[in-house]
Design a protein around this nucleic acid. Structure first.
Lengths: 213, 213
DNA sequence: GTGAAGCGGAGAGCTTTTCTCCGCCTACGG
DNA sequence: CCGTAGGCGGAGAAAAGCTCTCCGCTTCAC
């Protein structure tokens, strides 16, 4: 692949992630093209249709996510610290855009399934160790952590997005959510209601056929 | 106002809130009409343009928010419990939709400013009392709490929204975020970085002219 | 029962989005 | 350093989607 082609691919993928985050998966491809600073033909030449683009983006983000999980495990001695670091890293990647995998919209091929399984496995290892260390609440599952990072990393609506152009606020709020908002003087928190939400729960929910009218 | 007209208004406002949450303020009015189950003429007859609709919706939500703050103060003895209850109530209202107020898009009239001031005041009282009781971290401001409830109450992207059709998951995650994810065996959390974010910060950020290209 | 107000649906006109053709430019092997 | 294959951007035709109104029927209030 020629160097300029690879450069264009990178720019398109990055722009696509941001635009999809802000406007949803139905956002006009034209917006992506403009944000990427390339001509429309450049996008349409590489990707036959919207789905091809979403698939490429998804694979890209999944593998980055897997790398983040491994890196967290490798570089943090403490299991809970590793989970924390992973959540921060996932949010930094703007994970929210990765959810297309989980979406009925995408016909999930073998390659994507494998990537998803690897990522999920790496994350489960992290969580299990943290549970065993006794510092992560038992009622918190991988799905809870992923949802937390999706929710906190999505751009804020409208003008509020200007509050956090560089991600400082994102990490502040992640810290707060992870630490809890109460001081230590507060009584021990009651167990959160419900069962732990797993990665598999997310997949199951998203795999069901779309029932939109 | 005739009873059927009031019914239509309610259906349109509820649908508008949901559609704006999912698709942003530029969402086609046609979608709102369809979700509300009314004819297009019904919307256009009542609201001359998009702004009129946004204004009516904003006023509606702001006053409900103010009522929630007062109710929390009145019905909860403990100051921290009142804050907690308010955050849950705000998220339940899908506060995220209220941000149009804060948006440059809306010419904010006197009535809206007063409503905003009253709401902000009621919330500040709640927070101040909670700070004084020593159970709310001093580095947490009203803006942090509002942002938390905005972020957690926005609909999840794509198929993930099916995870939480009834709001159970929303309140679970709010509880987790409020409690923190660590057990009491963990060392006392480090202070979160940054200054407390206030309601005024949100207003200031949103009031600046829009610089979208 | 009756008049006034409200309602839904069909569709004309306009805007936005998709996607292609084509002439110019850039990377890379010799 | 040059030739050429592959890549690039822009203009614009065709398609899709959105806005908004007209009008005949229904519902409400008295």
């Amino acid at each position: 692949m020629r160097a300029d082609a690879e450069r264009s691919r990178r720019r398109i993928l990055d722009a696509a992630r941001d635009v999809f985050l802000e406007r949803g998966l139905d956002a006009p491809l034209d917006l992506i093209v403009r944000r990427a600073g390339v001509g429309p033909a450049t996008l349409y030449r590489r990707y036959a249709d919207r789905e091809a683009l979403v698939r490429d983006l998804t694979g890209d983000l999944l593998s980055r996510l897997e790398a983040a999980a491994h890196q967290a495990a490798r570089e943090e001695g403490d299991a809970y610290a590793a989970v924390r670091r992973f959540v921060h890293a996932a949010a930094g990647l703007r994970m929210g855009a990765v959810i297309p995998v989980l979406l009925e919209r995408l016909v999930v091929d073998q390659e994507l399934i494998e990537s998803r399984t690897r990522t999920s496995g790496a994350l489960d290892d992290l969580i299990r160790a943290a549970h065993e260390s006794g510092r992560l609440r038992p009622e918190v599952g991988a799905g809870d952590l992923i949802l937390l990072s999706i929710r906190l990393s999505r751009p804020l609506p409208g003008g509020l997005s200007r509050l956090d152009t560089d991600g400082t606020l994102l990490h502040r709020h992640l810290d707060l959510a992870l630490d809890g908002l109460t001081t230590q003087a507060a009584p021990a928190p009651a167990p959160a209601p419900g069962e732990p939400l797993t990665f598999a729960d997310l997949v199951a929910a998203a795999d069901r056929p779309n029932t939109t009218d």
